[in-house]
Amino acid sequence: MDDSTLAEHLARDLDGTFESLVHAHVDRCYAIALRVLGNPHDAEEVAQDALVRAYRALAGYEPARIRELRLRAWLTTIVVNLCRNRGRRHAPPMTPLGSLAELGAEPATDPSSDPATLAAQADQRERLGALLAALPERYRIPVVLRHVDDLSYAELSLVLGRPEGTLKAQVHRGLAMLRAAAAGTGLEEMTA
């Protein structure tokens, strides 16, 4: 069921349809939270909280409003806001990118090793996730939404309330920082 069909069904029968919404979106809500927060436990709580809040919000909306919702972007907004609140509540684990690269990435002796190689295996994915989690938030969130979740720039713009051009630059910059971190090269200069 695509999102507009799902929205139509939700508008007609929220309680009967909400389970389909959960199954369609729970993995991506979790993945976004996991990659933004870098912690499975927090990610699980945020994904649960986001979908429960979505249900309560939908229960208060008129059917016409539910039909017009762009569910994917709307749910993402809830997840991102909860991630940000959590980031503000608990001091964010801001490990400097340089030290993470030293700790987790492939030996810096081979600067040609790129993130795709790192991601080839599960523990390499974990390292990439750690590098991602260490990106400054304004780059990390757009990168996660664009490249982990595959949202379009139009959807990103809806979720984050920034112009598409800004977001493209931020994603671009975030990827460059990640690449540099993975290769263990001069990050201080790039983040200056």
Binding site: V26, D27, R28, C29, Y30, A31, L34, R35, P40, E44, A47, D114, P115, A116, L118, A119, R125, L128, G129, L132, V143, V144, H147, V148, D149, D150, L175, L178
Partner: peptide
Amino acid sequence: GLASLAAVAP
């Protein structure tokens, strides 16, 4: 590589 970071919920 980032696309491979999509995760399945517990």
